[in-house]
Design a protein around this nucleic acid. Structure first.
Lengths: 243, 243
DNA sequence: GCAGGTACTTGACTGAGGTCAAGGAGACCG
DNA sequence: CGGTCTCCTTGACCTCAGTCAAGTACCTGC
């Protein structure tokens, strides 16, 4: 919330670690130079807001490092955490392309460096290099699948199953297989945020965690999660489905 | 469900009523001729399935006339109706672009004429005319907004508010203002399907309708809905939000 | 006509998850 | 050190919507 603190930092697109994972990897050196010159990079601290729901959208944001949560709020102030955005992800391209204001907000969950690329630059690149548009299209297609999956799950699955599913998804990025073959997750999320990801209240998150502990499905200490048998998580998903 | 009945019909892209509303309207005559030659059109009766979740995706489907429901099912067989597709809408472009199997199914809700355009044709058009890709991108962006809105609503709003919202959305396409200024909707949906659109069971739909009747918010007879004061629907939305 | 559908309604019951309220555990700062 | 954050947990309670079961209305085909 400290808008005055955003410190400008300098980052180079050509040496950007995340570049291989971005849509921009299809650009020629010449085109990439355009991005590099036109961008503005800043560092954000945990809790800093990159953009708000309702803000005008003047371009796109590209994550160089860190972690960002995409939130959406309803009229009553209730909030959900739609997804996490990682280094290499481009945020806000949808609102920009559709010519809308931002329809969700982005908040740094960890210390992050994020580059802003102006709309003019994006527009001219889309014109120069049609492949870029197709890359964004594919990205949008994937996001849409995820969103529709989430719609389905939030209306059909009980909380336990949704949480099991969340852990399975987070496993792909934050999971490490321990020495005994057990799974260990080192999550970047508070419990509140996990709750917000599956659309429940913090109290329910607490209770769900406890019930997982009691059933020996997973063990939680701080933001570290131990899962002895991954199958238990999968079974949790399937089990609730067959009722 | 009568796969044998799909009767091939002939339709011309150049005279297609829906053409102005499609992504294809950016094509040159020459390019449109490619679509026209390559397409295969069929008539579907209510209940006929155009494609199933899990089917391989070989191209895209374009609706010439009629109405199609896009459904998605979870492991337990529970189903939701994600959205309606109308003449001019192109279906399946996402799975096609992402190279996935179809991740939802499409079912004709009314007698419909639908054209199939092969993947090869789409690919070559995307290459020839980059604007086409951008059009699809915009479409995807809109769909994504809708889906995220739905995720939010399904976890934060009670059934009454979700139903009020659904009626307000359906109003834009199916609403007529009666002589006394009241709103009349002539819906193309069964109550089951309305229930599926907001992710509830038919029994709950029945009860919600009854409670709207009792509160004089709307009156239902068959698929016709009378709404004396639209504000009541809007208030229903806001009211539940401020709790 | 009747049998067999499907769509819809209704009632009684249940339970998952939200709400309210209180208290504990750290972290940070004077 | 105590004070005040915020995050998290717990218990008691309640309500909304799902489930189960039965019944009605309205098709279509025989």
């Amino acid at each position: 919330m400290n808008d005055g603190d955003k410190s400008a930092t300098s980052v180079n697109c050509f040496t950007c670690q995340a570049r291989g994972r971005t849509e921009w990897c299809v650009l020629t050196d010449e085109e990439l130079a355009l991005v590099d010159q036109g961008k503005v990079c800043r560092q954000y601290l945990p809790g800093d807001v990159i953009f708000h729901e309702g803000d005008e959208c003047h371009g796109v944001h590209c994550i160089e490092s860190g972690l960002v949560g995409i939130r959406k709020m309803d009229a009553g102030g209730k909030e959900i955490l739609l997804r996490l955005s990682h280094p290499g992800d481009t945020m806000g391209y949808r609102s920009f392309l559709a010519g809308n204001d931002h329809n969700n907000s982005a908040e740094a969950l960890e210390q992050s460096v994020i580059c802003f690329v102006s709309g003019a630059t994006v527009r001219s690149l889309l014109k120069k290099n049609p492949t870029l548009g197709l890359r964004f299209l594919k990205h949008a297609a994937r996001d849409l699948d995820d969103a529709e999956e989430k719609v389905l799950q939030s209306t059909t699955l009980p909380v336990r199953a949704r949480f099991a599913h969340l852990l399975l998804v987070l496993k792909d990025r934050y999971g490490v297989t321990g020495e005994d073959g057990a799974l260990v997750l080192e999550l970047p999320l508070s419990r509140q945020d996990m709750a917000a990801m599956i659309g429940i209240r913090p109290e329910s998150m607490s209770r769900t965690i406890r019930s997982f502990e009691e059933d020996d499905i997973a063990h939680f200490s701080g933001r570290r999660v131990h899962v002895a048998r991954i199958d238990d998580l999968i079974r949790e998903l399937e089990h609730s489905a067959e009722l």
